[in-house]
Nucleic acid binder design. Structure first.
Lengths: 115, 115
DNA sequence: TCATTATTTAACCAATAGGTTATTTAACAA
DNA sequence: TTGTTAAATAACCTATTGGTTAAATAATGA
């Protein structure tokens, strides 16, 4: 499925869809099988499977196995990375940093090239 | 250009592209005209104009006017919204909240439906 | 007025995203 | 073994994205 984007891009892209955010919200209450996730949406099962694949490739969820079901479960690590990026930039943009150069260097250090 | 997605979707979608994140990084150092923004990328001017439009529709930047140039400038508000969303969910997923129900209600209150 | 510089718009293209229905695979139960 | 249930895969469709080049527009200056 394409040349695999950088992790941060994959995470933001996954979060850019309201259906996927709703799925994550649902999963915050506990893991859930595909059928249950599909119910609240006017959407076929395969469509939900595709959304889950996007979330999985972004590292935001993992899949399990329980009989015929493949429950989805939150994986907070990828979200933490995106949150850290956003928070750092937000604070930076809001001008709450004294030493700009040090800060930029720190960012540069954490993430290669442009991320 | 399409039925205008909800603001949070637009913001995350805008952040999902490494070129656009690099543009934002550059703009954190101060406003900049299109030509200067285009230089570091192996990319035509019109391509950069398109990226700027995406960022502008997401509310992440605004455009000005200085002679023939149309400098782009950061607008932190949209970023703050995305950052708040992510941070809330991150904390939630990491289980650092005592009263789950109260927290969910609070989230529900802040953002309609799924956002 | 005419030329120059910066940027946008138009027209186009290939690849990706998000959905569908029909078919296949997997796990279980009778 | 046969059927049932849950999910994934395949094949397909349309719209969007991210890029291109060529032409149009806007502001300035000679």
């Amino acid at each position: 499925m394409s040349p695999a984007p950088d992790p941060l891009s994959a995470t933001f892209a996954a979060l850019a869809d309201p259906t996927r955010r709703a799925i994550l919200t649902r999963l915050a209450q506990g893991e859930s099988p595909v059928g249950e996730l599909a119910r609240p949406f006017a959407m076929s099962g395969p469509a939900v499977t595709k959304h889950l694949k996007v979330l999985e490739r972004a590292g935001l969820i993992s899949r399990g196995r329980a009989a015929q079901q493949r429950p989805a479960k939150l994986e907070p690590a990828a979200l933490a990375a995106a949150s850290a990026w956003l928070d750092a930039y937000r604070r930076f943009w809001e001008g709450k940093f004294d030493d700009l150069d040090t800060y930029l260097k720190e960012l540069q250090h954490k993430e290669t090239s442009d991320e």
